[in-house]
Amino acid sequence: MNKELENNFVELLEKHQNIIHKVCRLYTDNYDAHNDLFQEITIQLWKAYPKFRGDSKFSTWMYRVGLNTAITLYRKSKRRVTTQDFEGVEFKIKADEYDDTEEQQLKTLYKAIHKLNDIEKALVFLYLEDKDYREISETLGISEVNARVKMNRIKTKLKTLLNP
């Protein structure tokens, strides 16, 4: 693959990396697993990139590949991004935005979401991304009506998980 393609890809990925982080946050619950899944999604995106024709938005194309990797292709591997890779890098904690209560609420929410199955997590992801049910049904390969029904059930399930 030529250098220009690689540069374009890296530039786009750097800009839109939050999408992958968001997928990883729903599907993993620890630092190593997050990085491992991030890397696998990046590899899958890079492999598929030459076929990306730009008729859909890069971010849309990205979350589809990201979700497919998390639900279907990802296999926990021995290959881990070691913590050494992150040595000397400062974490961007913005003190002024830090809110303990909100942080706590989100932690509890993520804990509840981690108890959902892979497909339910995918629906949650797409819902949070504000995708309409047509797009959700196309991404997962289920009917629009059933996607809506399932989403309502997930919301109820989450409520039960949060208020047992």
């Binding site: 890296v10 530039e11 990396q17 990046t42 590899i43 899958q44 890079w46 290959r79 890779d85």
Partner: peptide
Amino acid sequence: AKDIYPMLHKKSSSI
């Protein structure tokens, strides 16, 4: 970008 470049050349472990 410096972190991302090496990732592209790692081997996939997909099923």
